[in-house]
Amino acid sequence: MLSEIAIIVIRGVAIGALFSIIAMSFNIVHNATRILNFAQGNIFILGGFAAYFLADNAGLPIWLAMLLLASLVIAVLVAAQGWLTLLPLRGNTSEQDSWMISTVSVSVIIAAILMLLYGPFAYSVSGPVPAFRIFGVKTPGAFILAIAAMLGWYLLLSWFLRRTFTGLAISALSQDFDAARAAGLSVRRLQLLAFGISGVIAGSAGFMVAPIISVSPDAGLRYVLNGFIAAVVGGIGNNTGALIGGPLVGVMAMLMAYKVGGAYQDLASLIVLVVILMFWPQGLFGRATARRV
C-alpha cells in the first residue's frame, strides 16, 4: 500500500514536472506579451521527435550535444513564430482574437507536418539515464530528469528574471508595455527573446523526457492542456505557482488513473479545468504581476 502511494506520488510529480515546465514556458511569453502560445504542447513534442531522430540510444556526450542543438533550433523556430504572431498586433497585444487564431493554427500546422512525415505512431525513445528501482518497481530514469529539469528551470528563470538586466526588462514588460517602452526598452526584441526562451524550455524538456512521453503527432494537445491547467492552478504568470501547480495536477492525474483507469485522465483534466475556472479563476496562488488599478 505504502509503495503504491509512493509510486503514485513519484510518477505524479514527474509527469506534473512536465506540466510545470510547460506552464513556465507559457508564463515567460505571457508576462512579456500577454499571449498564451497554444502551440507550446506541439513545441514540446517537437523536442521529443528531435530526441528520437538525433539521440536515440546515443551516449551521453552525443546526447548532450544534440540536446543543445535541438533546443537552439527550436528556440529559433519559436522566436520566428513569435514574430509572426506579433506581426498583426502592433503593440496592442491585448487583442486576443488574433494571437489565439495564429497560435492555434501554428499548433495545427506542426501536428499536421509531423503526421505527414511520421504517421500517427508513437515512437519510443531511450535516453542516457538508466532506469532505477523504487520499492521494487522499475522506474525510468527520465522521471528524475523531468523533476530535475523543472527545478533547474525554476531556479534559472528566477535568477534570470530578477538578477539580469534583460530578465528585469522582461519582468518590467509584464507590468506595463507603455512604461517599458518609455523607459527605452525595445519591447519587440524582448518579446521575441521571451518566445525564444519559451522554445528552449519546452523543446529541451521534450527532448530530455522523450522516453516517458508519447512521441506522436497528436500528443501535443494533451500536454498543452495540462500545462495550461498547471499554469491556471498556480496563477498565470507565476512560476512559483507553476512549480506547485504542475506536480499537483500530475499527482491528481496519476491518482485518477490508479482509481478509475488511465482512459479517464483527459476527462479528469477537463473537470479539474472547469472547476478551477469556475471557483478559482485567478489560480490557487494568485498572480505574480501586480493587478492593474
Partner: peptide, 19 residues
C-alpha cells in the same frame, strides 16, 4: 466557467472538451 472567465481560458476549456 464563462460566468467567471473569458477569452483564452474558455479557449482551453473548449479545446479540452473537443479532445
Amino acid at each position: 466557467p464563462a460566468l467567471r472567465v473569458q477569452g483564452f481560458h474558455l479557449g482551453f476549456a473548449t479545446l479540452s472538451a473537443a479532445i
